[in-house]
Nucleic acid binder design. Sequence first.
DNA 1: ACCTGAACACCGTTCAAGT
DNA 2: ACCTGAACACCGTTCAAGT
Lengths: 234, 234
Amino acid sequence: MQTAQRSSRRERPAKPALSRDGIVATAQRVMRAEGLEQVTMRRLASELDTGPASLYVYVQNTAELHAAVLDEMLGHVDLSSTSSSDQWADSIVASLWSYTGILVEHPGLARSALVTRPSGPNYLAFVEWVLSLLQLGGVPAERSAWGVDLLLLFATSIALEHGTRRQVMDAHDDEEALARAIQQASAEDYPTISALGDRLISGSPRERFEWHVRVILAGVATTPVPKPSPQAPR
Amino acid sequence: MQTAQRSSRRERPAKPALSRDGIVATAQRVMRAEGLEQVTMRRLASELDTGPASLYVYVQNTAELHAAVLDEMLGHVDLSSTSSSDQWADSIVASLWSYTGILVEHPGLARSALVTRPSGPNYLAFVEWVLSLLQLGGVPAERSAWGVDLLLLFATSIALEHGTRRQVMDAHDDEEALARAIQQASAEDYPTISALGDRLISGSPRERFEWHVRVILAGVATTPVPKPSPQAPR
DNA sequence: ACCTGAACACCGTTCAAGT
DNA sequence: ACCTGAACACCGTTCAAGT
């Protein structure tokens, strides 16, 4: 066991200099230990033994901090391909599911992913992976370009939905309220809802997730993108 | 012009009794005037000339308040059908676009819609409307039941995405950072991204929105739902 | 240039005490 | 039962002042 006293002149360990990397690393550690809710400017400052104002030299605001943590987490998305190459759709389902799983643990990051167009290396690697699978599946380039957006939007918002509900207590109440509302829906005011009944909330989350992804893939395969409009497309 | 002095004994107008409806109505008014960010327990309390603690007699928490405001707003979704009945898909696109437009103005409500399973009358009326159009389009009941979820999830998260970006300053920075990242993506590390280039961010929001919805509709029309699993489906 | 203490302007929610 | 003041336990961000 090494003693805490090192060769430095003072007895207390030298306070490490602040740096963007140090701040982001601390953010990561705090998130892993206590969740993203604890990743606040004030908490990080106290963790780094300084005041919150000091952090503003290195990061613009809390959103930037969360975006940095997000990209780090996206390094853990499972990008392993299934053995047979004709199962490109299965691979897309699998990697999106992995992505969603990571964000469900940290719904705040899902929010980040939805709101701040991510552009970090790990995010790009994930996009690249999905695009390459779509290409493998023979999806025309233009449709892949727009389709990958829809796939990621779907996976992100499912994570935000389920993740937030998981960490809020009343989630079960809402679920029950909806089930009751559906069951009590009058056949007069809501004929279709009332006819569908429980089928509206049937299936496991995983079943619905997979079906939703396959719906998008099937749709992308058959829906041509519109011709670029004559006006400047932006 | 009526004088402020009425027949009541005191000079100051009698403070109206608190009630859930009164609180929700105030919430609505404040939101319209100053945005959902101002709809806080403290602000509402001061608006109603009392302390924040008093409101907890009538609403459980802020989330419940926002959910009530949400359903009210959903009463404004455009549910008018297109003339010819074979254009059911156009009607779905139109009503989802209307729904998204409303939530883009109030991204906090979009967040509510995503996180708290809504079950108010106006929400149900909207679901009923979309379901009836799917039925009109000949979509099998089981697929409608799961498909309406995907359609609403999509419309809600698009609203959350664009609405939040609109009200945050840095949104343009993010957009630029992504565009730069795509342009600079090395053909070695990200071959597909680099090959697609600007096509990844082409098209107007409206074009992309409509294409996304049509993708989902096409997918729903061709993707069978799995057979209910033998285990209890919940 | 970097760092800081203190302040500004807020939050949601709880609780003991009153009416 | 309903209502309240005050407190608890926090936020993000800015700014003037220091080193």
